[in-house]
């Protein structure tokens, strides 16, 4: 953990957690990260690095997939979590937008939104937040009665983010919001993520394959390999880092693209070092 970061108050602290699936498969091998209050933090890394597992460990979805935190601890808003399930954690203010949007296809858009606000009791607050959602995503207002399964991919992602907004979380975790979306739409979605962070003050933990996009909205970034954080730092430093430029942003030293063989070599070296 870097010293620049530790002076800000953290909404989320993950300290050296180990996660095991099905009692045998070790997926996270001592992972630590922190999300400062009111900021956007990115968690980057290749497929299978353990990014989604990290989010699920925080949001409480992990036990539902037969995963378990076997070591380390997670602290949220100053309180240590004890592997509660999401029905408790969402009420505490942690909300995960799952990978692949996971909207309820057989429910209407309106019903999907109602599910997002499921844990809330304040009707007038929900109504106000609903209006905010329509301000962020005007298209949703015109689709209210439609079955969510018939929405386009972009609209479904908007719906998924709106559901999260309606839960009014303190920490919103987004798992690959750019997945399967056209580049222009990805930009729009990220602009809104940034807007939500600024206007609502929601802290955001962002998991992405699209490193460039993710870093452009974040203040701090972590890079994961094989169940561990291999590199972290403020975004400016990550963007300046040669390894990051080469292997996550696709900018070769000489301007050309790297071959797959070199990437593999690099990763092997990183694993040796870590």
């Amino acid at each position: 953990m870097s010293e620049q970061q530790s002076d800000q108050e953290a909404i989320l602290k993950v300290n050296n957690i180990e996660v095991v699936y099905n009692h045998v498969v070790l997926v996270l091998k001592g992972l630590s990260l922190r999300v400062p209050k009111g900021q956007i933090v990115s968690l980057l890394g290749s497929n299978g690095a353990g990014k989604s597992t990290t989010l699920k460990a925080i949001s409480g979805l992990l036990p539902l997939e037969d995963g378990e935190i076997t070591d380390g601890w997670i602290e949220f808003a100053g309180e240590q979590l004890r592997q509660e399930l999401p029905n408790v954690l969402v009420r505490k203010g942690i909300f995960q937008v799952m990978e692949g949007r996971r909207i309820f296809e057989d429910l209407t858009v309106e019903e999907n939104l109602a599910c997002g606000a499921y844990t809330r009791r304040d009707r007038s607050g929900v109504k106000a937040d609903l209006d905010k959602c329509f301000a962020y995503f005007p298209v949703l207002k015109t689709r209210l009665g439609r079955l969510a399964g018939y929405l386009s991919g972009g609209e479904q992602q908007m719906l998924a983010i709106s559901r999260a907004l309606l839960a009014r979380p303190k920490l919103m975790m987004l798992d690959e919001p750019s997945l399967g979306l056209a580049p222009l739409l990805v930009e729009e979605i990220f602009a809104i993520i940034q807007e939500i962070n600024q206007k609502e003050g929601t802290s955001i933990l962002l998991v992405e394959q699209n490193a460039q996009m993710a870093l452009s909205v974040s203040s701090y970034g972590y890079i994961m390999e094989n169940g561990r954080v291999v590199l972290d730092g403020p975004v400016e430093r990550l963007l300046a880092d040669q390894d990051v430029q080469e292997f996550y942003l696709g900018l070769g030293q000489s301007g050309g693209r790297k071959s797959y063989r070199e990437v593999k070599h690099y990763k092997r070296r990183k694993r040796w070092l870590s």
Binding site: S59, L61, L64, E65, L85, P86, N87, L89, V90, R91, F95, Q96, V97, M98, R102, I103, F104, C115, G116, Y118, T119, R163, A167
Partner: peptide, 8 residues
């Protein structure tokens, strides 16, 4: 899973 993630 998605229902759980809504806090249901």
């Amino acid at each position: 899973m998605a229902a759980f993630s809504m806090g249901i």
